[in-house]
Design a protein around this nucleic acid. Structure first.
Lengths: 204, 204
DNA sequence: TTTATATTGATACCTGGTGCCAATTCTAGA
DNA sequence: TCTAGAATTGGCACCAGGTATCAATATAAA
């Protein structure tokens, strides 16, 4: 590996630590072919904490039961949410989501993103999936970014059942389509006194 | 807090570190009213590693992406599998699977168990969910053990599409029912030359 | 060439330890 | 009561993996 200019070395350093936070400065000197002082200046500029601090933060995150859960809860990152109307979430297909031989995502991950979004979009204290009719239109593959769009089709504010359609795209190709029936514990209108955040189970 | 005899101090020390692995020896001296040397001898006898080692282990455990994600591969434990005929899997609803307020399992976990099983039961190199029609008949709750039973209804050995019905029970109550259409890359018969384990994507 | 920036070297100091040895204190048995 | 053995404490050297700071070079740009 060549000696890189500062800018690229910084990028490389960030990347290296990102995908192996267990690297000591000394190991980094070998990887980047610069002195240990340079590594430390770089970390300083990039605000990358020392090894022990990184380990501590990771340990804390995994120890705190509240923070260790979100991975299992809402699948995908909700980027837009108009309660009882529509929502959008992003989900990148990673190594752990695919069949290793084919690189094709296991269906339940794609479903999980859509289901999470369908539940999130319903503005209610308790919202549960009652049923769903789903189609996997084409396989989603390793590295692809899935964009799920949900629209509330009916029952947007009454108690009982709401119908939500979710379409998931990779680029402009639709990979998944699902019609969800979501059970809600009460009508959306009655929520005005409660305050959306608090009343939203799917935010925890 | 009193000075305890050695035996009880050891117990106390183990307990303290167990529920707060972030304690330094120095902090432990204050809690147990003994010198730091005693703390260290105790840790030695009890084979409790030093703080930094504890943090490192925690960080490693949480970091390993493969083992940390439950929504990763086959969800549930397959206890019976008759390829192209039927299968049974078990899945216990744990803290990380439920809405924290209600203790009700998020739908995609129940779906994931059923989907995993439906794919597993199809004896083919590549088996993908094409579509599904699912019903959540009653909520599955924290602590409940879900028993999913899958039956191949048609297409059990031809190339193309296989239909699999999966019913999930808690005790004798049915909580979930799904009809899955699974795409398979080739007919089951042609697999005899390959050997089940190797040819089975859904085992990885 | 001069200047600014980047890199390296060197040293003192920090935390949270290990390892080892000696001194002291406690405690139970003869 | 005396004493041996266990338990506790103190002290020191040393370690990894740093921080903080200052000075010396090296390199590139004006």
């Amino acid at each position: 590996m060549e000696r890189l200019p500062k800018r690229q070395r910084h990028q490389e350093l960030s990347r290296l630590i990102e995908d192996n936070p267990f690297l000591t400065d000394r190991e980094l000197t070998r990887l980047l072919k610069v002195s240990i002082q340079t590594i430390r200046l770089d970390r300083l500029e990039l605000a990358i904490p020392e090894l022990r601090e990184r380990l501590k933060v990771m340990a804390e995150r995994s120890y705190d039961p509240v923070r260790s859960l979100p991975l299992h809860e809402v699948i995908g990152e909700v980027v837009d949410l108009q309660l009882d109307k529509s929502g959008i979430s992003l989900f990148e297909i990673r190594e752990e989501h695919v069949f290793s031989r084919s690189g094709i995502a296991r269906g339940h991950h794609v479903f999980a993103q859509a289901n999470s979004l369908a539940v999130a979009v319903i503005n209610d204290e308790i919202a549960l999936t009652a049923s769903a009719d789903i189609r996997f239109l084409r396989p989603a593959r390793l590295g692809e970014k899935c964009i799920a769009k949900a629209y509330v089709r009916s029952g947007g504010s009454q108690k009982g059942k709401a119908k939500v359609e979710v379409c998931t795209y990779v680029g402009d190709e639709m990979v998944f389509q699902g019609y969800f029936v979501i059970y809600r514990s009460r009508a959306a209108d009655s929520m005005e006194s409660v305050g959306g955040e608090e009343a939203h189970e799917n935010r925890d």
